[in-house]
Write a protein that binds this DNA or RNA. Structure first.
Lengths: 231, 231
DNA sequence: CTCTGCTATCTGGTATACCATAAGCCACAG
DNA sequence: CTGTGGCTTATGGTATACCAGATAGCAGAG
């Protein structure tokens, strides 16, 4: 008889953490009049657990910048300011640029071919109305580069940033003809990696991501007034 | 009458977190026969608090990779593998390289002058036996570049990496004539920033940090056998 | 009518009690 | 002597009780 091993390392607090994380990411907090207040007791009741594991999950979420816990005031989902978003994009550009550089050295030809295949398969959707699909494919493209670096930490750190930017990215891509420009950029990046040109690949990735940075900087001035220390 | 506002947002769990973090960083776990096991109850007794805030602090430390919590097994201080250390150095190079690039655009002449002053003040200690002092000054040098970027997130992310590398860096600098080479590198970096040469500054910083990467990769093969999933 | 101060209540912070699993020890059967 | 099964104990996981600050509403003094 063969039995599958049971993973006893998944605890309630881990489940709760993941659930809350997904829920918060799905919120699309920006511009909505969503209630950003979380109540420990009612959350615990909803999830049918006690406050203890819930609080440990919330601690993790605070650590990652998804929520802010103000003692005896409340727990609030964080609304990133424009400056914070811009800084996240800068950090992302830094990480992915390095990833592209490494990829030119360590990525197999097969992986590069796979990247090109992915980019080609989804390039058409940029011209269609289905920008949401293109947005997902676009994120995947960047994740693939990060994975091709062979450096798991780069990918992990970038993923942490991505999580905060799902809402942002959708909106950013929907404006102007950024999508088609994006396709051109992607092809250039793939060519550089394929040619094993480390400096060029790193430069192109950085410039590509920093274009999003400049775009966000130019388009969204309203944000910096939205959040901050409430009285 | 003027009174200083009281910061009521510092809670026990925050204190505990900081204490434990410092204690763990001071451990210099590598190569020691230090006990890596932490016991919740005895820790709580030592700190004279209950387990609840302690556990929340430990959750944060786990999130940051300082400890590993194995359900019903124990809490262990993490010993990074050689591969993990190398990846941290890569990520660090990525972040600081971008920081240097930004610094060439936004750092004031005064800040750059301050950086040069710092580097000059401590360059002599590299030839002396006091490598510990040089190591601290060296870390400070890199932090200054990160701060000069004006991007707080880059600095914050890099600091998270530094914390894990205090033990590593001390040892790395103590071998060979890396210290004197380091001084030369630093001056080149300062010159590039002063000349507002973004590409050069970014390249020099990256290459400088990646030299540490290659050094660690070459010197410490033993690590990759040390840690891992214990039975 | 207005302002002050009390109080009821809500919220997160902390302490404690209890639970389930893991691990080592030991007695007993073979 | 050896191996098995159960018991004891240690450990983290979870639930619950209690605490103190924060907040809003209300009553009474002015």
């Amino acid at each position: 008889m063969k039995l599958q091993a049971i993973d006893a390392s998944v605890t309630l607090k881990d489940h709760v953490y993941q659930r809350l994380r997904e829920a918060i990411i799905d919120l699309n907090i920006y511009q909505d009049d969503t209630v950003l207040r979380l109540d420990e007791r009612s959350l615990a009741a909803q999830l049918n657990i006690s406050r203890t594991p819930l609080r440990e999950a919330l601690t993790r979420l605070q650590e990652e910048g998804f929520v802010e816990i103000r003692p005896r005031k409340g727990i609030f989902v964080c609304r990133k300011t424009r400056e914070e978003v811009l800084e996240m994009i800068v950090a992302w550009a830094a990480l992915e640029s390095m990833a592209a550089r490494l990829a030119t050295r360590v990525a197999s030809d097969a992986r590069v071919a796979g990247l090109r295949r992915h980019a080609l398969a989804h390039s058409s959707s940029s011209s269609r109305a289905d920008l949401s699909e293109y947005s997902d494919a676009n994120i995947r493209f960047h994740q693939m580069i990060l994975e091709m670096s062979g450096c798991a930490l780069l990918a992990k750190m970038a993923d942490g940033l991505f999580a905060h930017m799902y809402a942002v990215r959708r909106r950013a891509l929907e404006e102007g003809d950024r999508a088609s420009r994006s396709v051109v950029d992607h092809m250039g990046i793939i060519d550089a990696i394929e040619a094993r040109n480390a400096d060029l690949a790193a430069d192109l990735v950085r410039e590509h991501t920093m274009r999003l940075h400049d775009h966000v900087a130019a388009v969204w001035q309203r944000w910096d007034t939205a959040a901050g220390a409430a009285p």
